[in-house]
Simulated assay, not measured.
Amino acid sequence: MPRVIYNTATTLNGFLADDQDSLSWLFVVRGAEEAESGFSGFLKGIGVLVMGSTTYEWILEHENLAEHPEKWPYDDIASFVLSSRRLPEIPGADVRFRRGGIDEMWSELTDAAGDRDIWLVGGGDLVGQFAEAGHLDEIRVSVAPVTLTSGKPLLPRRLESDRLTLESVKQAGQFAELVYTVRSAS
């Protein structure tokens, strides 16, 4: 059974993006290259990635995929986008649009992942849905030395310490990398 891993970066005060869904705060942090150095190894263990519509639209715009579909960064990974809206497709990319609950698509996700893991790219509400369904195994968060006055929260759900176990802490440049295992709600 694949593990479901939420791997993301956040501000010190727990925001994924600002109010305009911008990640500009992230790209100016010194040492980002060092923090990303292990990411290719992480991706080798991923068989499926899942994201919400806002994350997908950000990647479309940020990578200018309408004009350059070859820049889709996840060629060898089945990509699921959960949305109730119709979104633009990327020619040649294995992007599967789905709507509905996590349990409804759970077997499709695990079948597509095979013996590799499922990466929850974001956003926080999508991750919360996986947590509520009992399908969130690990949270890996890189905390940046940035604070925002408001924005998109890391995980807009209540997960208490009885469900989270700190597994590791590591410094990577200016980032603190935290890894927690997540226990399903009883």
Rank of each mutant, 00 (worst) to 15 (best):
E33H: 14
R30H: 13
D111Y: 11
D111G: 14
V29H: 11
I5F: 04
N64R: 08
S24D: 15
P153M: 02
V95A: 08
L87I: 03
F175S: 02
W25L: 13
T165G: 01
S22A: 14
I102L: 12
E160K: 10
E177K: 14
T149A: 15
Q129H: 09
R96I: 04
L49N: 00
R99Y: 09
E167I: 12
Q174R: 15
V182T: 02
S40P: 01
T11R: 06
D76C: 09
G45V: 01
L178V: 00
S22E: 12
A172C: 10
I46H: 03
P88V: 06
A112G: 02
K170Y: 04
V4W: 10
P2F: 05
T165I: 07
L12C: 11
E167H: 08
H135L: 07
E177M: 15
F175W: 00
P88D: 02
V143C: 09
A112N: 07
F39A: 02
L126Q: 02
S79R: 08
T8C: 09
E33W: 12
A131F: 15
I102W: 12
N13G: 10
G124K: 00
P2S: 08
G92K: 08
D21T: 02
D117Y: 09
F39S: 09
R158C: 00
E70K: 06
V146S: 02
D117V: 06
